[in-house]
Nucleic acid binder design. Structure first.
Lengths: 183, 183, 183, 183
DNA sequence: CATGAATGAGTGTTCATTCAT
DNA sequence: AATGAATGAACACTCATTCAT
């Protein structure tokens, strides 16, 4: 149920998954405990559902990613993708982090995650699982970590990173560091 | 007390901070609950102590980091640093993750973290907080994230990343992507 | 409503009264929760209704019981009664047990139970509440217990009692042990 | 822990196993919930422990049972045993009932129960599992049921059975009904 | 008559923390 | 300094019951 998913995401974001109480979520959704367990098997199940949602959002983001060339156009395309990624992150932050921390494991999420990875890799010209490209999995992992972490830094008030600056920096670093044809 | 810190790190590593029970730690250290609270104010306090230890280890790693140039020597120096970083990570993994997740906040740790950042930044020729270098904080954050996440991927059995390969990849990506003189 | 009573008896039999969920019953009856509470005040009320049904069945069984003499004919008559009692038990088992456990109390059920007792007592020549016969209530209670328990043992797969054997045994024990004229 | 077992038995007796709240038990024992779960895995575990205790009590009762002959001496011995059985029942009533209702299953309890059965059977001259004695298991089951139920009736205020009378009656019924040599 | 989504009081269980010895 | 039995606040989860449609 939307009302509960939204409330869950909000509460998870505010207090973190572990510190989030079902009672908080239920109160935020203006429902009852009973209703919560009518739609979710348990607290983790809600996180899983949110992870699926989030993975789908990222996947659709990545699916639209055009091939990124070594030129300025490529950098612009990457810049646009990263901006959308940051927006998605601003929405699903906790879920992404919980997912990356392996606190959630779910076939559907894993599948979508891999798909998104693959799309991003393709856009950057990396070849996953290809012979002679054993480095690319590690590369993608590092890339995703960078995205995740910088997004976190951006959404976190304390770290006080300027959004536009961080976006520019990351675009440049990735475009320069990961670009394959210039290898 | 050493015995308890070690046991704590071991248990945190095996079950994660949240899933770690004080009872597990106490049993691993072959002591009593009473003794635990003789040396630590609470469970989080132990994590904080470990975070300080960890921050010191990384700080001393970073302090030794020579200036890294754009040439092959620079890449080799970076490679060596990353190897040592990975080793440290293999030891303090959970603590680093918990720290990055902001589950621990402590002046001393933050101070040490910043110091380490600064050293790494200096080695790479980045200028933190300097006028005209507003990008560098974001850059460092992204770098640290990449280190952390790749280390995690390497230490995690499931992801099955080859240590040497990951090390090579990350060295190349960072040396190319972050290197300032080539900007 | 028949559909619900039947489903209730089925579910009670399968999972026991306490473990039976209203949801199970409702699903077994292919109805809704709302309908359940249209016909029964609550879960216990259904048990009470079933207990009344069951008490009536036993009462009508007992009402047909002819006088049982000390001879072989009497034993045969007793044998027939016990067989019918076992059949009834196979149907109403849980209800009888729940009733005996005093989990149900209801005037109607109590009245019917007493009536059945009285008929059986009369058939065996026992005199309830009669002066000079203070033992008979205890006797009847013990008899009923024996019937109940043996029926349970027979209907329970685990205990693996042979039906015919148990029937013969109980007939003999009761005919010999309870028969009044041989006192 | 004695204090908790005693409180548990008391509360089980007063409200029945299912209606007994851990909170009641803990309050009756003047302890805390934490302490309860220090000594018992859960509520059912307490019942199991009590069942073991009870089975041991009955087993030791049955172990002392001398051979019971068809004469007045035999009847007197049986009378004594039944009195002690009733006393034990007055103490462990709920546990026996819960056990018989198969709400508890435990190797140790089952073992002790079988031992007790065997002793009683031997005393009465019945042969369990012997060729040519297929009836005896059913007989014993019926006997135990009678004991249990009559004990219950005696301990229950509502049924208002006179203790001495019930004892006399049951002694006579069993001595007459179950006595093997007079077959 | 019938429905089934919504309810929320109630319960078993956990576990960090304390303190008398 | 060291112990570990005791604590109790806190939490996830259940399920009989209701009521607007």
């Amino acid at each position: 149920m939307r009302k509960l998913s939204d409330a869950g995401l909000r509460v998870f974001a505010r207090r973190g998954y572990h510190e989030a109480r079902v009672d908080d979520i239920v109160r935020a959704a203006r429902t009852s405990h009973g209703t919560f367990y009518l739609y979710f098997a348990n607290k983790e199940d809600l996180l899983r559902e949110l992870a699926v949602e989030c993975a789908q959002a990222i996947e659709s983001l990545a699916a639209d990613l055009p091939a990124i060339g070594p030129d300025a156009d490529g950098e612009a395309a990457l810049h646009g993708f990263l901006r959308r990624f940051f927006d998605t992150y601003a929405h699903y932050g906790v879920v992404i982090r919980a997912w990356m921390e392996n606190q959630v494991s779910d076939r559907k999420v894993d599948r979508l995650g891999v798909d998104a990875f693959t799309h991003i890799a393709q856009a950057l010209g990396l070849q996953l699982h290809a012979a002679g490209a054993p480095h690319d999995e590690a590369t993608i992992a590092a890339l995703m970590a960078m995205l995740e972490r910088t997004s976190y830094a951006m959404s976190s008030r304390d770290l006080g990173l300027d959004r536009a600056v961080a976006l520019d920096t990351l675009t440049r670093v990735i475009h320069r560091g990961f670009f394959v044809t210039s290898r």
